[in-house]
Structures are given as C-alpha cells and as structure tokens.
C-alpha cells in the first residue's frame, strides 16, 4: 500500500534552494535511507516533510495524521520522569497509553527516574519510545543513531524492523548501516541541479 508520495520536491534552507527534483514513493512496511554528504539538506528535507517548513516546489502526499518526526535531539525534559515525558507525548497525539512503549523499549524499571539521570543510550531509547507512543505509521528520523554504541544500534535496527513489519514506514537520514532491509536514496544528484541559483526567482539580477 502506498503511503508516502513525493513529487518533484524542491526544498530551501535559509532562503536558498538546496535540493531539487526529488520524487519517490514509499509503501507500507518499507524504509528509505537518505544518503549524501553533510550539509546536503537531509535535515531540511525531513523538516519539509514534517511540515515545519514550506516546500519551494512539488508536492508531498501522505494520509492525514500518520506522520511522526524525530529530530537530532530527543526533546526530552530533563526534570521530568520517563513516564511523565511519555505521558505528555501520548496525550498530545491522543493515544493515551504508554505501557506498550515502556515494555517494548525496556524502560519499565526506569519509568519513575528523571530523564536527566539516564545514560545516552537510555535517552535515545526514550526518544524512540516517544515515537512509539505517537502511534503514527510514518517515522521521519533525523540521525537516529547519534550517540549510540554498536549494540544499541543493532537494538534500534530491530525496533525499526519491527515497526516495518507491523505496517509502518521509516524515512531516515543516517550514515550507519542499521542491518534493516531499506531502499537508499542518494541526494547528491539532486543537489547538482539546485546549485544553480534561479536567476529569475527573485529578480535580483
């Protein structure tokens, strides 16, 4: 089943076009990994897909209320407990229960601990638990394996795999092989076209 379709998308960063002519579709149960050198616009693309910034051109179509976005940082509140952090996101997304996510992420024992007392790996797990409590199908992940050791990366890969098997989708920017079966989209060719500033766009020349 086709869930995410992107047509001829162009995205801008700081008012300048960085990527152009992006077209892809992603079906339920599949993952897509964005590749390309630093600064090419992976984060910009993910933020555009997440609706945080307008696209310069092209269309993005996905069913309503199916997307959850995770940025570089987990957006955790250090003074709130693990359960309080999760409860907040569960009520924002209207899903209510956090039990499944706590168990799946093996955070049950840590539920009452303040987020600041967690290790980097535990924090990342909490960040992923946040994605689980959103109950959303389409995951947009920006460098999800930052600050994870090899074992945690494998663990993370397993969780994404599980999400895919239950009909989820994942679109992520990462340099690391997660050991999951994913399509790869190299952004480099799309940068070449964008490198030429459109002369007529602003008419400054």
């Amino acid at each position: 089943m086709e869930m995410l379709r992107v047509d001829n998308l162009a995205v801008t960063r700081g008012g300048l076009p960085v990527l152009e002519g992006l077209s892809f579709t992603l079906n339920a149960g599949h993952a897509l990994v964005l590749r390309g050198p630093n600064g090419i616009g992976k984060t910009t693309l993910l933020r555009t897909l997440a609706g945080l910034q307008p696209a310069l051109a092209g269309t993005i179509s996905m069913p309503p209320e199916t997307m959850a976005y995770a940025a570089h940082s987990d957006g955790l509140k250090a003074t709130l407990s693990v359960a309080e952090n999760l409860h907040f996101w569960a009520s924002v997304y209207g899903t209510g229960s956090i039990d499944g996510a706590l168990d799946q992420m093996n955070l049950r024992q840590l539920a009452t601990r303040a987020a600041m007392s967690l290790s980097a790996g535990q924090k990342r797990r909490l960040g992923l638990a946040r994605l689980l409590v959103t109950g959303r199908k389409i995951w947009l992940l920006d460098e999800p394996t930052v600050s994870l050791d090899a074992a945690s990366v494998r663990e993370f890969g397993a969780i994404v795999q599980q999400h895919l098997q239950t009909g989820g989708l994942a679109l992520m920017a990462t340099h690391i092989d997660l050991g999951i079966d994913a399509q790869v989209l190299d952004l480099t060719p799309h940068m070449q076209a964008a490198a030429q500033l459109r002369q007529d766009q602003e008419g400054f020349f």
Binding site: L16, L197, F204, F205
Partner: peptide, 9 residues
C-alpha cells in the same frame, strides 16, 4: 546571493 552561489558550486 553571489557568495551563496559561489559556495554552492
């Protein structure tokens, strides 16, 4: 804009 174009290419 010129500087940006130069950096991009």
């Amino acid at each position: 804009a010129l500087i940006a174009r130069e950096t991009l290419s």
